[in-house]
Nucleic acid binder design. Structure first.
Lengths: 110, 110
DNA sequence: CTTATACTAAACCAATTGGTTTACTAAAAA
DNA sequence: TTTTTAGTAAACCAATTGGTTTAGTATAAG
């Protein structure tokens, strides 16, 4: 599916917190919202974005909505990073890193 | 360190394209900008965001700026996803998935 | 020296985002 | 039945974002 949507979904700190929370246990929308100072509606919006990206699934049980992570999509995101690192490593094995000497300084170039 | 900034940085499609491009070879700001229809300045802004997040490094050589991926930070992002998946899997091993197809009336864990 | 190149810096603008409030519905509790 | 709970839906708003243009700086080429 869309790795596109996944990264942009977990790019938001609130949504990453929700995802982390769900990695520990499934939870209802209310349970997910309670740690935040924002309104339930705001959190519900974030949840819908995560749902739209396929990061989580939601299911109505009684009058509450239970949420759970969708492993497949998260695995896809990880694969994107895996592939990236592999391509990068392969290339370095062949060519060497012309920026290697600067690797220690984190400062942006000027 | 700031997985925060990393995910929000690669949450943008233009910036992900830049990162993918850099996984194949290092490149100058001009080289990175050329495939895009937007202005050089717009791409330069994206590059600065990636740099600020620690995803890439930039170095002035002559009058051009050369960019390269910063493996460490990308690895961190991958670790976040790894940890997430590990926590999630561990929990499922212990509890089972209440959203699994036949939908038992399992209460969500706290 | 003069001009072109490869950028950076900053002002500016429209569209998107993240939040609010207000209003609604379905299910459980009293 | 009436009320409360657990949400959804939508209008609305301020701040951020992603783009532009204009202007400036350092280096290389003519």
């Amino acid at each position: 599916m869309a790795v596109e949507a996944v990264f942009s979904a977990i790019g938001d700190p609130t949504r990453r917190a929700i995802v982390e929370r769900l990695s520990r246990s499934d939870a209802t929308v209310n349970e997910l919202a309670s740690p935040f100072s924002m309104t339930l509606q705001a959190v519900a919006k974030h949840i819908r974005i995560l749902e739209g990206a396929g990061v989580i699934r939601k299911k109505k049980i009684g009058r509450s909505y239970h949420c759970a992570l969708n492993r497949a999509v998260l695995t896809e995101a990880r694969s994107w990073l895996d592939d990236l690192e592999r391509d990068w490593s392969d290339r370095l094995d062949r060519l060497g890193d012309f920026l290697a000497e600067d690797a220690k300084s984190d400062r942006p170039a000027q």
